[in-house]
Amino acid sequence: MSLWYDEHLVLIQATMVSVLFALSIQVPLRFGVFSFAGVGSYGIGAYATAILVTRYEYPVFGALAAGALAAALIGYGLAWLLQRLSGLYLAMATVAFDLLVSVLAVNGGEVTGGATGLFGVVADVTTLHIFLVTVVVLAVVAASEHGRLGRKIAVVREDPELSAALGIEVHRVRRAAFVASGTLGGLAGGLNTAITTTIAPGNIDFALIVLAVTMIVVGGASSWKGAVIGAFVFTWLPTVLAFVGDWKGVGYGIVVAAVAIWLPGGVVGVTGDALRKLTSRRRTARLPDRESPAPGPAGPSRDEAPQGNRKTHPQEQT
């Protein structure tokens, strides 16, 4: 077990970072906000951490916090800028934001390292640190799916007009989704830079947007569990498909296409539907058959016969 852990340590760390990254896309979708700004926030957090550590010798955890905060603030401003957009138009605008971050990284000169990026980000981040951060984030996100907050988010997602009629500030909820996405994306990007010691524009290009979408499509956007499943699948899938060699991309595409066709709600959605159907069948099986007679004597006794149908003996009439 120890040997396997040592051999796959990089993948284990990458999986936890991927969970945070996938959550940066899943959380706004659960709010009803069709946004991929988490990808751009990932780049902001990654570069902010690298710049602060290499240029200004910041402690790594301070740099991580600063990167996440910067991404959250930019996400808040982006929410104000795009508050009139929704649906596909909002998604396109956030994709443009992601590509803009990549372009700025390429043209950032010495600050961002240009097309080659930044190297030598020395950080003492351990697997335990990443694990604790991931667990805390998952606990907070899972808690937001239940209780009053969870019901509020569900109403805003399903019917914004009804939410406004009930006194819920829909725009405020949308801004909170952008801030949460920015924080999670910035944190994931910073942690990835800390464990790989490098960041380059090629790490935050359009391929990262595609990866984010496939994670959520496969796992499911309805719950944090979908983000976790998607992160695990697409972090380990290249290793699993390594035996096919140059056909790895084909196998990758087949997996994604199969899930999109046969699991339209993602793994979490299909599993939830199956569990609900199974629970419903069990409840139906436990209900008594209403058409079958109740257990008891075949008919009423002479003394229990209704008075209207009871024949009176001649002697009883006198």
Rank of each mutant, 00 (worst) to 15 (best):
T214Y: 08
L241F: 13
F206E: 08
T235C: 05
A227E: 04
K248C: 02
T196K: 05
I195A: 02
T239Y: 15
V228H: 02
Y252G: 03
G220M: 06
L278P: 01
S223Q: 06
V270P: 02
P238A: 04
I209Q: 04
V256S: 03
V267K: 06
V179K: 04
I216A: 09
A188V: 03
T214L: 14
A258H: 13
A242T: 11
G266F: 00
I216Y: 02
G230S: 04
L211F: 11
A177N: 11
W247V: 00
I195R: 11
I199H: 02
G190W: 01
K277C: 01
F232H: 01
G253Y: 13
L278M: 14
F178V: 07
V255Q: 09
T271I: 10
G245K: 15
V270R: 15
L211S: 08
L187C: 03
L187Y: 12
L211D: 07
L278A: 15
A194W: 02
A227M: 07
G189Y: 10
L241A: 14
Y252Q: 10
G266D: 03
V268A: 04
G226A: 12
G226E: 10
I254M: 14
G190I: 13
G251N: 11
W224C: 00
F243V: 13
G226H: 03
G190F: 09
R276M: 12
A194Q: 07
L263T: 01
V267D: 03
I195V: 12
A180F: 02
A231K: 07
L241V: 14
I209G: 01
L208R: 11
T193D: 09
F232C: 08
I209R: 00
P238M: 09
F234V: 08
V240Q: 11
T214N: 12
V259F: 13
T279W: 14
T196H: 10
G226T: 07
W247S: 04
V228N: 00
L184T: 08
G249I: 04
S181Q: 07
A180M: 13
V233E: 00
G190S: 10
A177R: 09
L191N: 04
W262Y: 15
V228I: 15
A258M: 14
K248A: 01
W262F: 15
A221Q: 10
R174V: 08
G249R: 13
I209S: 09
L263I: 03
I209Y: 00
